[in-house]
Design a protein around this nucleic acid. Structure first.
Lengths: 196, 196
DNA sequence: GCGACAATTCATCACGTGGTGAATAATCTC
DNA sequence: GAGATTATTCACCACGTGATGAATTGTCGC
């Protein structure tokens, strides 16, 4: 906006929403440290001061961007209702559907990349492993629930990295059925199979 | 060093090695972006200009820190020599021994955290998946080698995140035998088992 | 139409970053 | 012992960062 003057723009542009959407995209692709407030502002077509006006500090913006449009615990609830048989497949299909939907994927990507950020790492351990996966295992009546759900979580995280982050072929372009065929037996064994 | 003067220090302090060691530690724990040249210098007890003197740019320092003391391909070679039977377990034990040795773990951690860095992501795809895992699959005569080795890679990456990065219990403190009992059957099925 | 309020940009700040060059001290070679 | 070379710090640079406050513009209610 090289000809921009001070003052309010005409009409009702929802610049706040534009800022939030761009923040979600940039935090997901470049992480917290790799995303500057100015970059978010530029992508939204506003001045950086407006970002602070609406969201406060960069930390506050980050937290706002992390708010998923839906509660993951609700999404995964059906997995637990079907009982332990076939739970591996149901869990995986639900997981894939969440990750293949861009609306939910961006905040999730942001959270996952936080595993390497000492200040934000609790997001993954407490948010994903404890709040999302833990209750599923408990509801399914999984034995040795902490061990088994952490095995499950390790494979799911591996899938995220391979398919969604590094985009290794042929995993990146595999269909849900193909992934289920390969991974569901693994998840099922981790849930109720023989662990040696 | 509040009383430091200009000029060479007496004796033969190996400041270059000190800088490199600190760089390895910091890049592994804070990543490229989260590690400043001044932080490395401070940790090594020298002035930041000395880092540039010895290593050039920050990028050059990063590459130097990435040089593992040993070639991972040599470490994993025995896995391929024993044939496909039991390869899952041999691969996992070798993998764990490399990761549980701090000398090799730091550069590996640095590389793994690069999955989220667009500029350095090829390190994982090309370095780990293609150069290390790929040849193992080929040497073992694995069918559908690209698919199967990417499945293997996805679980190994998940183990890295869960055990070494997020340090989820009980995986973080599990013995190698416990991990083998849980994961080796998964890796073996990915190598030569039924994938559906 | 006027005043209050909200939205928006411009101008600025303190600080940290990667990096450069000159001054200084120690070691080595002749 | 002198000069060359190497190691080391100090001083400085340009730039980008998160953030603040004042000036300006548009909308709404009376």
């Amino acid at each position: 906006m090289s000809t921009t003057r001070r003052g309010r723009r005409p009409g009702s542009p929802d610049t706040r929403a534009a800022i939030l959407a761009e923040a979600r995209t940039l935090f997901a692709s470049a992480g917290y440290a790799g995303t500057s407030v100015r970059a978010v502002a530029a992508a939204a077509g506003v001045d950086a001061a407006l970002v602070h006006h609406y969201f406060g500090t960069k930390d506050d913006l980050f937290l706002a961007a992390l708010q998923a449009p839906i509660d993951p615990r609700q999404v995964f609830a059906p997995v637990a209702e079907g009982g332990i048989d076939g739970a591996g497949e149901r869990l995986l299909r639900t997981f894939l559907s969440v990750w293949d939907d861009e609306t939910t994927r961006l905040p999730l990507l942001t959270m996952v990349r936080s595993v390497f950020d000492p200040e934000r790492q609790p997001l993954v351990r407490d948010g994903y492993m404890r709040v999302v996966l833990g209750p599923i295992g408990t509801a399914l009546g999984v034995e040795d629930v902490e061990l088994r759900m952490s095995l499950v979580g390790s494979q799911l995280m591996g899938i995220v990295l391979a398919r969604y982050v590094v985009q290794v072929e042929p995993l990146a372009s595999a269909s849900h059925d193909q992934l289920v065929a390969a991974y569901a037996p693994t998840l099922q064994r981790y849930l109720d199979g023989v662990l040696g």
